[in-house]
Design a protein around this nucleic acid. Sequence first.
DNA 1: TATTGTTATACTCTATAACTATA
DNA 2: TATAGTTATAGAGTATAACAATA
Lengths: 138, 138
Amino acid sequence: MEKDGNQQLRLAIQRLARRIRSNAADDDVPESQRSVLFTLDNHGRQSLSSLSEHECVTPPSMNRTVNTLVAAGLVTRATAEDDARRIELDLSDVGRAFVSETRRRRDAWFTKQLAALSAQERGILDAAVPVLKKLAEQ
Amino acid sequence: MEKDGNQQLRLAIQRLARRIRSNAADDDVPESQRSVLFTLDNHGRQSLSSLSEHECVTPPSMNRTVNTLVAAGLVTRATAEDDARRIELDLSDVGRAFVSETRRRRDAWFTKQLAALSAQERGILDAAVPVLKKLAEQ
DNA sequence: TATTGTTATACTCTATAACTATA
DNA sequence: TATAGTTATAGAGTATAACAATA
């Protein structure tokens, strides 16, 4: 890869990620809350402190975010059976439906963008998927 | 491209963009300010209102951000010669150096990640660059 | 009268410090 | 005494409304 090919690739990825976010965001739910919903969907029921660690936010801050989500009916809160200090946070049915719907909208937008490409271009992207995944996870 | 290949590609891009940001961010300068510096570097000297439009922020909000940047010596402010209502905002030399340094650090991190790939994998990514760019800009 | 920027004020999200309940 | 969560309070960053200066 040539000298500034790196920069071209990095810029293209950052720009595309920005477009995905701005085109598929649901402005009614702020990013901080949406991120918690997706974390609960991806990693399941968990305590306040594990959630705050995962989101790189302090417990008091996460507490407030969670309160909002519980008040909105998107998240459920329950005391843990084995340790009365801990609370178990999880998605409610409404929260789960919200996550599915958000995901569906993102995919719909992205699929529409892909449809404008040629078969050859889509083939190039298909080949790149595993490499991008490796890059994101290594 | 198969059914959920779209989703795989979208997820890989979003994850990779997140990693680029978290690994190369300069925590001393908040994202809102950094974004203004990059906009001035990319699009040159401009007024408060054009800057606020570009950043999708209200003029009072941008005014505050700009005040901070001027106080920090990263941005210069001057009354426009042809219209005394307008102000011209631009990068100072220090601001320009900051932008270069940030860019250099991002590239360094990303280049290091790419170095872990095989020649074949890098070739696949090279081929994908123009397609990703098209996707980000269409 | 319209436009450009600024000030006043309030709301949201985040943080640190201090507190309560449980282990 | 240590841990999980909460409350109190303060600092960014943003918004709307009202204002000042200039065109």
